[in-house]
Design a protein around this nucleic acid. Sequence first.
RNA 1: CGGGGCGUAGCGCAGCCUGGUAGCGCACACGGUUCGGGACCGUGGGGUCGGAGGUUCAAAUCCUCUCGCCCCGACCA
Length: 498
Amino acid sequence: MSSDAITSREKDFAKWYQDVIRQGDLAEAAEVVRGCMVIKPHGYAIWEKIQAELDRRFKATGHKNAYFPLLIPLSFLAKEASHVEGFAMECAVVTHSGLKAVTSADGKTALEVKNPLEEPYVIRPTSETIIGHYFAKWIQSHRDLPLLLNQWANVMRWEMRTRLFLRTSEFLWQEGHTAHATHEESLEEVERMLGVYADVAENVMAMPVIRGKKTDSEKFAGAVSSYCIEAMMQDGKALQAGTSHDLGQNFGRAFDVKFQSKSGEIDYVWQTSWGSSTRLIGGLIMTHSDDAGLVLPPAVAPIHVAIIPIYKTDEERSKVVEAGDVLRRECEGAGLSVVLDDRDGLRPGAKHFDWEQKGVPVRIEIGPRDVLAGSCVVKRRDRDPKEKTPLALAGAAIVLKNLMSEIQTSLLERARAFRASRTVQVDTYDQFKQALDPGGKGNFLLAHWDGTPETEKKIKADTKATIRCIPLEGDKEPGRCVLTGQPSAQRVVFAQAY
RNA sequence: CGGGGCGUAGCGCAGCCUGGUAGCGCACACGGUUCGGGACCGUGGGGUCGGAGGUUCAAAUCCUCUCGCCCCGACCA
């Protein structure tokens, strides 16, 4: 890819994001209606892939899926002080249980809300409270622990401003909720699930992430501490892609979730919660895709290979389609998902653009010349569209299967290299301000911080950059705060965030 | 909640300033020629111009009110 192409991609990224992705009929992914997301079939197929990979890992680590009510009594939410404070302003509230049709004098029919509820409900913004309520009923003994549950559900947070995939009022997610007998055990769980998220992000979505701890001002409302994975998007902004919280005994106390230990003492359970959402689709798009549409790593691509037959006459058509069909069956036998695009009335070029836009990793052309030569032409979505590679039809399925792993790896490497090129160590506040956003390109800044919320706030007010996380891995050299010069234990990641 | 902008065919828009037969591109339907990177020609279907009221001989256009949506800020997975 030329440097011009990269510059143009960065410059046009915001516009592309709106034009291509937001207009779902081009990307066939999703759109926002009244702040809520409509996920179209192609977008949903990608989500299903991510979902399956997460779910498999949750089960492999001993978790079971469950489902809890959508409506949460107001009183539940009030039980944990900092939790309610964090979510109160974004709760949709159900106050009535009925409607009545009213016909006015001019003959028009309107509906009036009827039957006010004695106690209103909130539509879950997250389920800690209602799950805490059930945990209290289900847990009596240390033998009931650990209790490891996960829920796939929609939640609602009445956001003032929404953004497709990244922040919609209603979103689809997964929330894990666990209860443990000791803090050591719950902390292990927090770390384990953060690891699961990082694994899926990097090895499935090819989206490199930084694992870290949130500062107190950024942590989950009600948590003792929050951990996260942070990814860099192509415009240099940070995206929080998953969180894992140590809830301590906060919810245990609030919902009276007690158990009797082996030695007979009564104690509150130690809880965790962790979540990741359809925001991951947004992260995926903003990590890899370009002006021509989606670029999908094979592990999340609903379709791996699109075969495009080239023909003029009916005779040619039947020959190339037959050859394509043989290839399709062989690829499917190798575990690849394939479409043979034999649509009439669309020229080959239009088919290329179509599958390119949908992010299909590999397209294959088979024409009359190829059939004679026993070969086909391969085009990779992650490479220059003009690049063509010939491939012998015999044994093609295995080659394509291997090509998928190659693409998967290469996308991750490319994203890693991009992030590295946009990550800067800074030691003075001047450097900080200069390096944050040079010429509209965002950067991740590794800087020392004195650990105070005041400094964090001041930097945010000055620069819009927030502390994305205190990284768990990497350099742990102490130093001096970039703003105040006070001692700092390690560098933290500053960036502008979505 | 503050500041901007937009509602006209399925989608994207022009027309509005200066009132006078509602248009363009894409998509759709039919016919033909095409087909190795978004085909072309011809024909055709599709609209109570977001809604209500007002001014006028006449309103998509001017005025008032209203509803909805989008963008920027504060808030956020």
